[in-house]
Amino acid sequence: MRTYFLRRLFVLLGSLFVIVTVNFVLFRLMPGSPVDTVISPDFTPEMKALLMERYGLNEPYYIQYGLYLKNLISLNFGRSFQTRLPVWDELLSRLPNTLLLLGSSFLIMVVTGVALGIFVASRRGSRWDTVLTGSAVFFGAMPGFFIALLLLLVFGYYIDVFPVHGTMSAPPPTGFWPRVYDRLLHLVLPVASIVVSGVGSWMMYTRNHLVTTLAADFIRTAQAKGLSKRRVLYGHALRSSLPPLVTLFFLSLPNIITGAVVIESIFSIQGIGRYLLQATLRQDYPAIEGAFFFIAVAVLLCNLLADFVYRLVDPRIEVR
């Protein structure tokens, strides 16, 4: 147990170190200077020097690094060059949109995936099995952004039914329920993109796990006892599949969080992922640093959580 925690601690601290260092080093390796993003032909050299001074970019590196660590600990990522707002505040204000997107797609993906998995496991070898397994392979191999593009093309352009950008109409309708409906409508395409690209792995995982379990001894015993097929499936096989599914849940979170970068930028959703990408395209350094750190730490936490939950639901297994 102690080694286990030591290991986890090492991994956590190591990852943090790598992320922090990558973050710091990359931004100092980079050519160019941030003043350039606000350059205009009417600026004189003195003016550029003034700007440089104002953004504190004239300090030596080790002072900048110390400042950087101190700021990270106090969650102070500096102010965005673009908006002059504290990056932390900006990230927090964008968090709800990301959480809503990821939460709803995740929920739908897991429920649909597991349900489909049970469905095909109980009809192993049937036509349904072939079709669904085949689709899972197909959509699993398709890049996530391409799935989003296809949905955009079909439901945004050919059949003009769903909104294709943002999280609400401008301005949103009045009244609580119309507003909720409006938001849901805006969620359809982005959520569908994430679900389509991820549901296959859930289905396959559930299916394969159930298939192996159904072949196991204790299930055969149960069958021999004369329990109904349904009872065996839900009562025994599924229950034994739960712990790994729970772990899978947490293990796949990092991928989904990363995928948000793409989905959010395709559907113009004001979330964390798009914030990172926009900051990148605008060379808004404090914002890039902050967003990257935020995403990386979120992923780390998910990994950590996955480990603990795994141990919680299945204490027999020593992880790694």
């Binding site: 290991r7 090492f10 991994v11 190591g14 990852s15 790598v18 992320i19 990558v22 973050n23 990359l26 931004f27 390796l29 980079m30 990092p254 969080i257 990363t258 970068v261 793409v262 990172l276 990408l277 990148t280 395209l281 060379q283 890039i288 967003a291 990257f292 995403i295 990386a296 992923v299 780390l300 990994n303 790694r320």
Partner: peptide, 21 residues
């Protein structure tokens, strides 16, 4: 453990940041 560390760092954001810098 180094492998674990690498596994827990999200690739795409790192690549975005590298491309930007």
């Amino acid at each position: 453990r180094i492998a674990d560390v690498m596994l827990s760092i999200p690739v795409l954001p790192v690549m975005i940041v590298v491309a930007a810098t």
